[in-house]
Amino acid sequence: MNFSPKRKTSNITMLIAAFVIVSLILWNTNSFFKKFKEEERLKMEIWATAQLELIQSSIDQELGNLTLKVLGNNTSTPMILMNEEGSYKTHNISEDKVTDSIYIRKKIEQFKSENEPIQIIQEDELLETLYYGNSEVLNKLKYYPLALLLIIFLFGAVIFFFFRTNRASEQNKLWAGMAKETAHQIGTPLTSLLGWNELLKSEDINPEVTQEIAKDIDRLQTITERFSKIGSIPELREHDIVAETKKAYEYLKQRSSKLVHFSFSSNMEEAYVLMNPPLYNWSIENLVKNGIDAMKGKGNIAIQIEKKGQNIHILVSDTGHGIPKSDFQNIFNPGVTSKQRGWGLGLSLVKRIVEEYHKGKIKVFSSSKEGTIMQISLRAIEK
């Protein structure tokens, strides 16, 4: 897909703007987080001072009430207050964990990693050490940038897939319109050819000539019908897939080079599936022609039909150069081709006919330097 320089510049500008906006949001969030953490530190230092005042002023009842009020205001920050003897008190920690010494030690290590402990000292004597962790609000704020990035990513992904789907839909409508217009344009000269062929039949001409012309005219009518069906929902009816495949096989065999050797086999006389014959035959022809191109016009083409369970498998094999395993899925994408001349629409069209219209499956069954086998699978109708 080619983009104009103007569009490239626009895309780069949008990417830079998005990067700048995200960077500013993250920087602002980080600054707010640091500021909030400093406020919590200050609150803990005030609480430690109140704890010291409580120790010093046990006689002064009025000061004690004020101190207790300060101490009681903290209801969110988890804390562990430990003295020199190893005795401890907890605040805002689950009561069922208070007596678990192992849990308390782990919590102290966690708090030390989150915040520097505050020592409560009186006259150069260490009385207690306050270990405190991040409050619930601060923990939530810590993960806010990740949540914000996830939201931005999801929003961007929704926009991307919306425009991608919209663009694909427009391209499909364009191709369908072109196909229908092609079918319409072919119709006029095709009608003229029918008239000229009838005129030739009245002349003294070898009947085999007019018969072959009639076959090619029928072929053109089939091609016109195929193109007219693109973009429309085809009508599916019960048909013998063995007979329809053999019909496509015979046509291709007669009109291919003598250097290409064809073979056809089936493990059943007939098998019925829901299909649209013109579109199905088009798929077989595309697979065979791809195989002939891969063999550079010389080699073996084999078509095999077999039934396994409730599915009918149609295997089209060639003796070409093979397909790399990494490209097994890519070859069905529009525009992917190994030919110097070609639009890479053949296999993409086959996939659409088989999977979207006939509700079947198509895949690369196997491929190596000795050749490739393509497999179409359709649901059988039990008689």
Rank of each mutant, 00 (worst) to 15 (best):
S4M: 02
K6N: 12
K8W: 03
T9D: 07
V20Q: 04
K34L: 15
L42K: 12
L42P: 00
L54I: 01
S57Y: 03
E62K: 06
L66S: 11
T67W: 10
G72Y: 05
E84P: 00
E84D: 08
E84S: 10
S87R: 07
K89I: 04
V98Q: 10
I102N: 07
Y103S: 02
S113P: 03
E116D: 07
I121C: 05
G133M: 05
E136I: 08
L146V: 08
I159C: 02
F161H: 04
N166H: 10
R167S: 15
N172S: 07
W175V: 11
M178S: 11
E181P: 00
T191G: 14
L193S: 06
L194W: 02
S202I: 05
N206S: 14
T222R: 03
S232G: 06
A243S: 12
K246Q: 14
A248S: 15
Y251D: 03
V260W: 07
S263K: 11
Y272W: 08
I284F: 02
V288G: 07
I292V: 14
D293L: 09
A294P: 00
K296A: 15
G297P: 05
Q304E: 15
E306N: 13
Q310K: 14
Q310C: 01
I314W: 02
L315Q: 09
S317Q: 13
P324V: 00
F328Q: 02
F328S: 01
N330Q: 11
G335N: 13
K339Q: 15
Q340R: 15
Q340F: 08
G346A: 14
K359I: 06
S368Y: 03
I373Q: 08
I373K: 06
E382Y: 06
